[in-house]
Simulated scan of single mutants.
Amino acid sequence: MRCALILSYDGTHFLGSQTQKSSNNTILGNLQKVLSTLSIDSKIIASGRTDKGVHATGQVCHIDLPEFWTDIKKLKKVLNEMLPSSIKVKNIKKVEAKFHARYSAKKRVYRYIIKESKSNPFEANYVTFLDSVDFEAIQKNIKLFIGEHNFSNFKKTGSDTKSNIRVIFSASAYKHKKYIVLNFEANGFLRSQIRLMVGALLKLDASEIISQLNCEKNFKIRPAPCNGLYLSKIKY
């Protein structure tokens, strides 16, 4: 029986989401370890990877359960009891055998959170603190990313991808108290693409962003910190 697992996690102390040969300290590494103790040896497939320090409120994975695991409500309860408190299984549901967490996904939604204030220890791992932000410029310039673009200048060096073309369906910014929330929805993202887009919004003007989007010039801006980024939702 193929099942989809919806996960939320605090990525602060993990080395990203994907399993690694050198360390089990990843989101899927911890999940795979717990599943193995329950005699579930199916490989976990996630909708996509999140880097070290990045969080999720709606990561989706799929696994194939052995025949003796028919009670998925019980499985959810057991997993949440055994997993670290920073990883939570929000839901488990039966899906069609052809469902694939990564390849069946139509849209991916990410959120980036900035707080316009001095840093404090209680939120340091979850938002990016800035003394001052030109919100009006961000709200205007974020729309430049909407549409189909070649994001060659908005990916981490060394990324192994067949194509750098991605379609941004929506990109917006709004204020909530002292927080600035940036939302991006696309058919997919390159590695560190969102953090580099946010970095561009914080450092470049509109003409410079357009120039970098058109692959005319690469300003080599630094990616925004990982702690403000959240994988919010996967749409199928």
Rank of each mutant, 00 (worst) to 15 (best):
residue 97 A to H: 06
residue 98 K to M: 07
residue 11 G to Q: 03
residue 173 A to S: 14
residue 117 S to F: 04
residue 161 T to K: 11
residue 132 S to V: 08
residue 126 Y to S: 08
residue 84 P to L: 01
residue 226 C to Q: 12
residue 2 R to A: 11
residue 94 K to C: 11
residue 106 K to M: 11
residue 170 S to Y: 07
residue 181 V to F: 10
residue 225 P to S: 10
residue 214 N to Y: 09
residue 32 Q to G: 14
residue 133 V to I: 15
residue 78 V to E: 14
residue 113 I to R: 11
residue 48 G to R: 10
residue 170 S to W: 04
residue 230 Y to N: 00
residue 91 N to P: 06
residue 29 G to D: 12
residue 179 Y to C: 08
residue 1 M to Y: 07
residue 213 L to M: 11
residue 115 K to M: 15
residue 176 H to N: 15
residue 65 L to S: 04
residue 176 H to T: 12
residue 7 L to E: 07
residue 196 L to E: 00
residue 170 S to M: 08
residue 45 I to H: 12
residue 111 R to G: 05
residue 71 D to G: 05
residue 17 S to W: 15
residue 94 K to H: 13
residue 12 T to V: 07
residue 67 E to I: 12
residue 115 K to N: 10
residue 219 F to D: 12
residue 175 K to M: 15
residue 154 F to K: 00
residue 56 A to W: 00
residue 209 I to V: 10
residue 131 D to A: 07
residue 83 L to E: 00
residue 72 I to K: 01
residue 225 P to F: 11
residue 202 L to F: 14
residue 53 G to F: 02
residue 128 T to H: 13
residue 2 R to Y: 04
residue 209 I to W: 02
residue 218 N to E: 10
residue 102 R to Q: 13
residue 152 S to W: 03
residue 221 I to A: 01
residue 46 A to G: 13
residue 40 I to G: 01
residue 189 F to N: 06
residue 130 L to R: 14
residue 73 K to E: 15
residue 202 L to P: 06
residue 133 V to F: 08
residue 153 N to P: 05
residue 65 L to H: 05
residue 78 V to M: 08
residue 188 G to E: 09
residue 135 F to W: 07
